[in-house]
């Protein structure tokens, strides 16, 4: 925590190549560098299949990088670190557990006592707007509600850096707007360092303090945008749309 006001995560010149069965190399991440600051909402934006998830997997220590450095608070990242928490596109809720049991799983695994972890879980269940659904099972919830459970679970585990990998990719356009509002609201109430990955320019502009635009495969940083639009943001405002168009024109089309 020594760098509370400065850079939390620093990614320097990372590379990743995969090999096909016939040993043909396939470069997926090509010299990517960026920094994540304390309490920043950083969006990584890129077209489909451009290697966004591979970058996240390397940052979170789930996958080895071929080259380059990743440092969290000045320390080299080589394996998953409890300071970082993930929300995935496929939520991975446990269908045999209630909302409460799903949300409290992180602190439970770390041996936090029942009272303390339930209080914390209840706080975040309320914060995502699911108060009253603590005893429901995932199959009783809509897609948007399940995704909220995933978000509450990630917050309850209290990561210092929250990583969200296309969390709304499977939702319909309106439920997606609803979830974007929720995340913007929660973030304004509770500052946290967030890395949010998406292929949706509108979503990136609505949520991000900074947007890192990636090129189509292999992923490399094409441009970094500082988003200085006032919050809460209006997606139909001329400034918003102008910036959206600018980024869109700079984005590769991955047919």
């Amino acid at each position: 925590m020594e760098q509370k006001t400065g850079v939390r995560l620093s990614v320097n010149n990372i590379y990743k190549t995969f090999y096909s069965k016939s040993d043909e190399p396939h470069l997926v991440v090509d010299n990517v560098s960026f920094k994540v600051k304390e309490n920043e909402f950083l969006v990584i934006l890129g077209p489909g299949n451009c290697g966004k998830t591979v970058i996240l997997n390397m940052i979170s220590g789930l996958m080895e990088r071929d080259n380059g450095d990743i440092e969290l608070d000045g320390e080299n990242v080589t394996s998953p670190n409890p300071k970082m928490g993930m929300v995935f596109q496929k939520m991975g809720l446990m269908p045999w557990k209630t909302v409460m049991e799903n949300v409290e799983i992180g602190p439970k695994m770390r041996g936090v006592n029942t009272k303390e972890r339930r209080e914390k879980a209840a706080y975040y269940i309320n914060l995502v707007g699911l108060g009253g659904f603590e005893k429901s099972y995932p199959h009783q919830l809509s897609g948007g509600m399940k995704q909220r459970v995933g978000i509450a679970r990630a917050y309850t585990n209290d990561p210092e850096i929250l990583i969200m990998d296309e969390p709304f990719g499977q939702l319909d356009a309106q439920t997606r707007y609803n979830m974007q509002n929720e995340v913007a609201r929660i973030t304004s109430q509770e500052k946290r360092t967030i890395i949010f990955v998406t292929n949706n320019i509108e979503e990136a502009l609505y949520l991000g303090d900074r947007v890192i635009l990636l090129a189509e495969c292999p992923a490399r940083v094409k441009e970094i945008y500082n988003i200085e639009l006032q919050r809460p943001r209006d997606m139909i405002a001329p400034m918003f749309l102008k910036l959206r168009k600018e980024i869109s024109n700079n984005t590769d089309l991955a047919l």
């Binding site: 489909g48 319909d172 356009a173 949706n200 320019i201 869109s248 991955a254 047919l255």
Partner: peptide
């Protein structure tokens, strides 16, 4: 019925 629901915006317009 929502044929381009999951595409990114640039792709959707194309």
């Amino acid at each position: 019925d929502e044929p381009y629901g999951q595409m990114d915006i640039k792709m959707r317009y194309y």
